[in-house]
Nucleic acid binder design. Structure first.
Length: 350
DNA sequence: CCAAGGGTAGCCATGTGCTT
DNA sequence: AAGCACATGGCTACCCTTGG
């Protein structure tokens, strides 16, 4: 059954991934990438049938932050070329013997200056869902890729780096009054505003700047989200970088992950073997139209399949792009019964 | 999925009093 | 005047919950 209905986040996320892929493959320049983004947003705004954000605040935050990203793309220092959407195969021992084989696609892989193999996963989502306690779960897919590259390329684990690049955010580095440097993570479109108190402290110490000039300078910098109008010595006390969340890779964790994934595969297979699964689910997890997740995000309950079945045809929303699919990873262990592979993947990593 | 708000713990800038 | 220890208030990161 095709449940790939999509939502505004998957539309924007897909565009963003494609744009970065073209840039790192050398097909486009940074300037073209920014232009393509602006065109994409403009067309989205003009398309009344497009998926919508839930509120204007969410929309503006999302678009403004990503616009700042596209306007300030930094290409990491690297040796050789970038691989984008590179397939990687991972084999793990099945819970009931045999081998589970996964194939997935890494957003970006490259070798850094120190010879480390770097695996990058781009995220356009909010960092709240990537807090420390949620990271082990969020990083399962990435860690499985790391295990796969460790297996196939025979690269030691300590030479493999895994990270999420949280595109909506940046790391602000600033010099404290005691001379020490510190880091703060901020939404890209608001980082100067968030530094207002620090900028004020520094400006106050500058004898050449009068009180009225200060607030003018601050307003100007905040409006432009840039310190370009500030005195040089103040500019030198700030810089921004991509906000990367590093995922620690070690043998014990990966062994545990492989075990968990193998058990999950076993559980999913037995789950899918339940007779009359759909009736079972309707009874066990009934659709709640007041639940935001059910109504807007759940792949099953937002699908045309479900709506047609339930006679909710008036709820069927415009389809922005029928061709886009999001099959990040396929379970090759089940290649001969591939029907269930997407479901297995979604259960594991969705 | 998102933002917002509450609570908590830890860090930092600042001021004060004291000493050298 | 400069250095130090300490208290204070402010700020921030982090986590969790709530509600759309």
């Amino acid at each position: 059954m095709d449940l790939d209905k999509g939502n505004v986040y998957s539309e924007y996320g897909t565009f963003t991934h494609d744009a970065l892929e073209k840039l790192l493959d050398g097909e486009t320049t940074k300037e073209q990438t920014l232009e393509n983004w602006q065109t994409y947003v403009a067309e989205w705004r003009n398309n009344p049938r497009a998926f919508q954000f839930d509120t204007s605040q969410i929309r503006d935050g999302y678009i403004n932050n990503l616009t700042e990203y596209f306007d300030n793309i930094t290409i990491p220092k690297h040796q050789g070329s970038f691989s984008n959407e590179k397939p990687v195969m991972t084999r793990i021992k099945g819970a009931n013997g045999g081998t589970e084989v996964f194939v997935g696609y890494i957003d970006t892989e490259y070798t850094d200056e120190d010879g480390n193999l770097v695996l990058v996963d781009y995220k356009t989502s909010s960092k709240s869902s990537f807090s420390k306690s949620k990271l082990p779960e969020k990083s399962r897919q990435l860690r499985l890729y790391a295990l796969g590259e460790h297996q196939t390329l025979d690269i030691p684990l300590d030479k493999i780096k895994c990270r999420f690049n949280m595109l909506k955010y940046c790391e602000v580095h600033f010099k404290q009054e005691n001379g020490k440097w510190k880091t703060s993570v901020q939404e890209r479109s608001k980082w100067v505003e968030k530094m207002k108190t620090k900028l004020t402290t520094k400006l106050r110490k500058d004898d050449d700047i009068q009180g009225f000039e200060m607030s003018e300078l601050l307003d100007k910098a905040i409006a432009a989200n840039s310190l370009a109008c500030m005195p040089k010595n103040i500019q030198d006390q700030f810089f921004i970088q991509d906000y990367l969340i590093e995922i620690d890779i070690n043998e014990d964790d990966l062994n545990e992950l492989a075990k968990e994934v193998a058990e999950k595969c076993r559980d999913i297979r037995s789950f899918e073997a339940i007779p009359n699964l759909e009736s079972y689910l309707e009874y066990t997890y009934p659709y709640d139209p007041d639940n935001y997740f059910d109504k807007k995000l759940c792949g099953y309950h937002t699908s045309d399949y479900f709506k047609e079945k339930e006679g909710l045809l008036e709820d069927i929303e415009p389809q922005a792009d029928l061709d886009k699919v999001n099959d990040d990873m396929v379970d090759f262990g089940d290649i001969f019964s591939s029907q269930e592979s997407d479901d297995v993947f979604n259960e594991l990593f969705g």
